[in-house]
Each structure stands twice: as C-alpha cells, then as structure tokens.
Design a binder for these strands. Structure first.
Lengths: 353, 353
DNA sequence: GTTAGCACTCACAACGATTGAGTGCTAACA
DNA sequence: TGTTAGCACTCAATCGTTGTGAGTGCTAAC
C-alpha cells in the first residue's frame, strides 16, 4: 500500500490536531477543518489504510484515531517542518547563555529553567564531561582556623571546591607554597602516578603532612567524581499539566523514573561519540517502561575540545516535536558559539599543557 | 464545657487513627478498637461535645469525625508524646551530618534527602545566612587563558566561586599579589567603602585594571547575594503519595507554591530572632491558601556565631507530628554539635578578625 | 451518667437507559 | 477505479434511579 499525498495530509492533520488537543480525531472533523476536497467517507477509507499501516490507532471502536509511535516517527523523519523561532525567544535563549557563561552550574540551571519555561516540558541538562580528565590547577584557600578549601580546576574548566578539615591551618604564604608544589608535581608526574606525587609532596612539606594527605585525597576524589554525571532538571512539574498524566499513579511513576540517576544514563546513552544531530526517541522506542508514554528529544553540546554534555527534553509522546527541536537546536548553537568565543584565545596562544 | 480524661482519649484516638488512615472515624470504630469501657453511644455524646468545641469536624452528616486544625493544635501542644528515635535512625542522621560537614551545599542537600526519605514528607532546607556579612578572604585562581576564578570566603564560612572573563590572565605570581592586595584592602577599609578599596587596588595594579574591576564587582555581587535565601528541597514528590492530594489540581497548586521563593520567605518568616524551639504551623494557621491543607514543622539551626538556617518539613495536616518533631530535633542537634566541634578552635585561638 | 434502640442522613456503588461521536460496509455514481 | 451517501452498529460517557451501609442524633429507660 502506498501513501498518496492525501493520506500524508490526513496523517499530518491527525498528528497536529492530537498534539494540540489530546483528543482522538474523527473523519468528519478532518473533513470540516482541513480543506481536502473530499467527503468524510473518503477520509474514513484513508484512515482505515493508515491504521492498517500501523501509523494511527483507535483507542476504542467508537472513537476517532490517534497517532501511533510509528506515526510520530514517520512524521518526525519525513514530514515535520522546521519552525522559525520568534526573535524574542531567540533573544531570550541567547541572553540566558551569555549572562551565565561564567558559572557552569548556574549556566546549566538557568538553561534548564529557560527551556522548561519555553517548552512546558521537563528538561534535563548534564554538566559537560570530559572523557579523559586531568587536573590543571590547584589552589588552597584558608577558610577558618581549622579548614582550608582546595579549589581544583580541571582541564575541562570545571572548578570544584573541596573543604579540608585539619588540625591547624598554615599561613597564607605556606598555603601558596604547597599549592605551587602540588601544581608542579602534577605537571611532572602523571595523575596515575599518585604514589610519586604523594612522596614528593610529603618530602617537601613534612610539617603539613595532614593537609597534604587530605589534599591528595581530594584530588583523587575530584578525578573519580568525574565519572559521576552531574545533572540539573527543571520543569518536572510540567508533567502534571498534561491530561495523559492526570492519573496520579502515572505521574508518580514518571517522577520516580526521573529521580533515578541510572535512568538518565540509560536515556542519554550515546552508543558512542558525541555528534551534532538532534535525537528523538518516541514513546516505546525507549526501553524504560515508566517512560513509554513519553518522548525524549536530546542533543549534545560540546564544551571545549573533548568535553561535552547533553540537553534532553522529556514530554508526552504527543509533544510539539517541531518547536522542541527548534528551541533545542538554538540553545545548543548559542552554547557552542559562546563557549567557542571564550576559548578562542587558547588555541592561538597555546601556552598551557 | 470541660474535657475529661475520656474525651481526651477519644480525641487522641481520632487523631492517631486519622493520621494513619486518612479516613473519618466513627463512634463504633473507637468503641471497638480502643478499650474505653463505654458504649458507642456514650462516645457519640462525647464526640458531639468535642465537635462543639471545634476540635473535630464531620466532613458530611453521615460520616465519622476528623480532627480540625484546632484539634491538632491541642494535640500538638498538650497531648503529644515525644517519640524515641531508633538507634538506626539516630545513626543515619548522625552520619549524614558527619560525612558532609565539609561541603555546605552537599550537607544541605544530603540532609534534605535523608529527612525526606525518613519522614516521607517534603523537606526545605535553607543555607545558613548571616545577618551581617563580611568577606574574610579572596583568592584568584587561573582557569584558562581568558578566565580566572575568584574564590570568595565569607566570615560565615561560605565559599563561593565567581568566574571572571578577562582579555588576558596574569601569571600565578601576579594573581597571588592581587589576591593579597585585595585581602589587605578589605581589612583596611570597610566593605561599605568600596570606593576606597577600588581606588587603592587600581592604583596598585594599573596593568590589571580589567581583572581588578571585575573582581570588585564579583565581591559586591557576593555581598548582595547574601540577601538571597539559598535553599534546597527534597521529597517534593512525596506529596503525591497522600490521598488528600490525589487530585492533580491540588497537587499542582502545592507544587507551584513550593516552587515560589517568596513562599518560603513567608513560610519561614521568623518574626524576629533565631530560637531553639521547633515550630509547628497547622493547616490554615499559615496564610497561604495553597498550603491550607498542609502543616509545616520547622526549626532553626545555628551555624557559627550569628549565622543560622532553617529546616522545614511540609506534609499534610494529617502528618505524624510526633515523629517529625523527633527527627527534626535530632538532625538539628547533630548539625549544631558537629558545627560547634569544628569551630571550637576559633574562639580559643581568636586570631582572625 | 450510660446505654439500647430507632429513625434519619447521605456518600457511594451498581444498574440501566440515553446520547452521540465515530466507524465499517454497501450500493450507486462519475 | 475512486468517491460518496446512507445506514446499521459500537461503545464511552452521562445521567437519573435505586439500594446499601456507615454513621449520626435523639429519646426513653436503666
């Protein structure tokens, strides 16, 4: 069976209508609302064919049709028109990135928040994560008489604080000396060779054994923490706004799924490398049964050379794919442009290793 | 009308039963379940009296009784037995604090999470906030060729990072010099006198005008940000578990309320100073209409000398007050003990100003 | 003060009838 | 061969009716 132009139009009508109303669409509605020049009986015949192809389904005998996962898939792959963003929205997205680019965690949070507000769906943003992590710089900063913060800057520009509690805190000069020494040691030895770094450090600063030991431990923790995916969510409650989730049990199971970290790993599983496309996973195409009624639109953004994160939009299968893809592409582009403009200096000067 | 012993017992029966089941309790149920030695008719008479006093209400004519806000209030103030925590729970609470005391944001998050898991209610924790904020130490740390992190340590031991983007980043030695200079300047002038600090700094480091300007701005932001209440929530979804909120609209309105920052300010409004009591606000006693079906149990914890935060537990009016108060008191005690043990050195040595 | 007994109330569930949106099929038409 | 009008059929949703049972308030007697 072939899909002629009219059948495509009917499928599109069903999908766009259903996205708007969440109600099954009947043949008469299509005949009246869309000017196809044929009667409802003809549309009925076409709908029967579309159903045979598995593109639409009937919730029950005496109801209209709604799109199936396969129907959405065809729509998304072949029929969907890309949507122009309004200048206001484009501006808003640009500003979110521009204003928060300095603080990576703020940036992630604000990005998620803005996308949630714009799309009305649920947003998950993962922090950029580098494949190979290396420590770039370490600095000790005094906090009070018993604690020092180790500020650890990694190659992929994440800045993390680790508070170290010690018996007594050396003065600032000494802290600077230790900081300098650890930076030198990290340059000289590979991070794998913690033994050598430790012994070198302890030899040079025997009077601050406790501090140095804890510092090294913090650095190890930082390296290990890199394996943890940090992520931010926003708009989780938007789920409750959709009639398909007005059943509390359904909403709860989705919430539970979104709370689990492993879920995200499954969901955002790259099956390989970062790439530039926007990925769409529709309904049952993902294999988590709690999210079978949801679709996920996601895209990676690169952050520096080999570091990247993911932004995912989670909504009902009946989501506005076209708008979502536009907004997502726009924010990714903004992120990458601004990030690139910052790190441009780096390649030219090429000082640091 | 007076409340004799039996009436108290009946009220208590109604409250404890309703907390468990969320169903109205009838006179026969009480007669059977609680051995009061009187018939249901007698209990009926007493219940009628309790209703006249406004301590219980009937949802409709042919239903049992449920406690009113005033009933809960009487129970909480006069009748409630304090509950011993099991050693496991006590241990868990202790460990949460002990293991995370170093990183204040982690500590808040983990505390909220643990309480949410233990109580099954919604937890809101505000970061400790000082009345008067002063900057204790500033340190610049290089990130890449275009950016520097300003690590700002405040008197109440919060450590915040601000990323500064500049045309070119001076070498580490210079960064240390500038850090030292700003620390000195902050010591010499009051923070109110930013003018003087700025001119002194710019005079001393004219070649890093951009960096110094941005640094000063970051410091100002840090001071201002202190006015913002930072808070962490956990267990928001627990709301959906309670039958009284199984109506999606109700749940949504509560979620919306919890999302609003101003709500918290209203909710946690201290009407004055920090004190040691656990406060309980029952149902309509708070004046936010979205939360009229919720109760709030909250307590302040002090963090250092004049800095304190608040932990709030939000649940249905039908919440287990006794357990909640126990858990909350325990975590507050843990927090304060551990915090005190850390800062003990401070008062003895009394070095820094 | 307590209790048994009884009439009364009212939410809730079950049932059946009605409605209406929507379909599939058939026969006729271009 | 594609299109259409017409008609019988299906079935979720709505609505009124009825029965049921948990629970009350009142009264009279103990």
């Amino acid at each position: 069976m072939d899909l002629n132009d009219r059948k495509f139009k009917i499928l599109e009508a069903i999908i766009t209508d259903y996205i708007k109303t969440a109600e099954p669409i009947g043949s008469r509605t299509i005949a009246k609302k869309y000017d196809l020049g044929v009667s409802s009986a003809t549309i009925r015949n076409d709908m029967s064919d579309l159903e045979e192809l598995g593109l639409i389904v009937q919730p029950h005998t005496s109801a209209g049709r709604i799109p199936s996962d396969r129907g959405y898939r065809l729509y998304v792959d072949k029929m969907m028109q890309s949507q122009e963003l309004s200048p206001e929205v484009a501006d808003l997205l640009h500003n979110v990135v521009e204003n928060n680019i300095g603080q990576i965690d703020y940036l992630m949070q604000q990005t998620a928040k803005a996308l949630a507000a714009l799309t009305n769906y649920t947003i998950v943003v993962t922090e950029p994560k580098s494949q190979k992590l290396s420590i770039k710089h370490v600095q000790l900063v005094p906090v009070d008489e018993r604690s020092v913060v180790a500020v650890i800057v990694t190659e992929n520009k994440s800045v993390k604080n680790h508070l170290l509690r010690v018996g007594s805190v050396p003065d600032i000069e000494q802290l600077n000396n230790i900081s300098q020494a650890i930076n030198a040691a990290i340059q000289n030895y590979s991070l794998q060779d913690m033994e050598s770094i430790a012994s070198a450090m302890l030899q040079a600063h025997p009077e601050n054994r406790e501090l140095v030991t804890k510092l090294l431990k913090a650095i190890l923790t930082a390296v290990k923490q890199n394996d943890n995916v940090h992520y931010y969510t926003s708009g989780v409650n938007n789920i409750l706004g959709f009639p398909e989730f007005s059943d509390v049990e359904k909403a709860k199971s989705i919430f539970r799924a979104l709370e689990e970290k492993d879920m995200l790993i499954t969901l955002f599983d790259k099956n390989g490398e970062h790439n530039d496309e926007v990925h769409i996973v529709i309904g049952g195409e993902n294999n988590m049964k709690e999210l079978q009624d949801c679709s996920i639109v996601r895209a990676d953004y690169s952050y520096g050379n080999d570091s990247y994160g993911t932004i995912g939009v989670i909504g009902p299968t009946r989501m506005n794919y076209s708008q979502t893809v536009s907004v997502l592409s726009a924010i990714i582009k903004n992120l990458e442009t601004v990030i690139k403009s910052i790190s441009d200096g780096k390649n030219k000067e090429g000082k640091n290793g």
